[in-house]
Design a binder for these strands. Structure first.
Lengths: 208, 208
DNA sequence: TGTCATTTTAAACGGGTGTTTGATATTTGG
DNA sequence: CCAAATATCAAACACCCGTTTAAAATGACA
């Protein structure tokens, strides 16, 4: 495995777990078993490393997400909101085949992108999201025409919040679920529980 | 105003905005206009300062939240999930009377508690939440008896995720809403949009 | 095989971190 | 009013940070 990949893998593990500001390059290069200077040599800076890390997932996710949402959009069959969200779920879960814990790692990284560093979210959305947002908005509009694009915008972000936040604290939650309810859970279980929730949330009646 | 309060106020501002790891004691003491050593003198350590900051809100919020949920529980009138969540909203919004931007500051701090530092969430929940969780579970169970306490547990956390995450990125979202939709929004607006969403989410039909 | 570009390395750089110290003010209570 | 407790202060401590440097190792190719 080449140095760049070793760095990306170690960075993914640590960033997802401890956030961007909470993880040092020395921890990353130590776990990756490469020299400290390698990060700046191969990526330029810590910030660029973070972007490269997100790009590795987005290059995989964006096309399959757009494709999946387009299918919903162009389908002749009648569809509901659970279908729209299942269109999200499959591409997200397929990240697990790409890399171990791919799905939860990506969602945790996404969460840190929002909360760790100011402005990062803006860059992230404006450079990567417009296509996905438009597709999602169109898909929801198709199955729920009364909902304004403004409402859809907000409910999309509530939904992202639910997913991202839940994944960010998955470990703790699975811990608690195990202690208090004697349940053994994994990411797929959690996602299955989320879908009805967010589908109902997005499909909520419009309050005046 | 005494030194302890000056420190707490400055810390609240900075921690909410930039997270715990992203804020230094020097920034805090500089804005608070107190000596750097004052934090360790009055609080012992940075970690203890964070706990004291959360405690300042929780001591205010927990009793009024328990009271509000108990009222829902003991009410003779018929109630729905929006009533249950309104029971949350009023105590939360009343934090705005306690301190400027109290509501969003607290929710942002809560968000950082989840994502910034490992283990902090566990401490937070186990030492502060059991009463609130029990009350919420009972209140939801009252208006939606078919839902298992397991389902309620998950949907409560999805709901917290929605609220906390949304508040953590409120600035960015309000920015985007302003640019893309020409909307001027504040925290109360956002909360009003969240309620139907989470009420519908918690009230979603049970999937087998 | 020898040259040249690429990659890796150890070491240092300047600066920021939380915390501690010991001296100096300030406030409090007999 | 003065001694004792409390609070503030500048300075230093030891450590960790991201980044840069320049030399050493490795690779590709003629």
């Amino acid at each position: 495995m080449d140095t760049k990949t070793k760095i990306l893998n170690a960075a993914e593990l640590l960033f997802a777990d401890k956030g961007f500001t909470g993880t040092s390059l020395r921890e990353i290069t130590s776990i990756a078993e490469v020299n400290l200077a390698a990060v700046n040599y191969h990526f330029g800076s810590k910030k660029e490393l973070i972007k490269a890390l997100m790009k590795r997932y987005l290059d995989e996710l964006t096309p399959s997400l757009v494709k999946s949402l387009t299918e919903v959009l162009e389908s002749e069959e009648e569809q509901d909101l659970e279908d729209v969200f299942s269109a999200f779920v499959e591409p997200l879960l397929s990240l697990n085949e790409l890399r171990e814990n791919g799905t939860s790692n990506f969602l945790q990284l996404l969460g840190h992108s929002y909360t760790d560093s100011q402005g990062f979210l803006r860059w992230f959305i404006t450079t990567n999201y417009p296509g996905i947002i438009d597709n999602f908005t169109a898909a929801v509009h198709k199955v729920y025409p009364e909902l304004s694009s403004e409402d859809i915008f907000w409910r999309l972000h509530f939904t992202m919040g639910t997913a991202v936040f839940t994944m960010s604290s998955t470990e703790a939650l699975i811990d608690i679920a195990s202690n208090d309810f004697g349940l053994k859970l994994d990411v797929a279980d959690v996602i299955k529980r989320i879908i009805p929730y967010v589908a109902a949330g997005v499909g909520a009646p419009i309050s005046k």
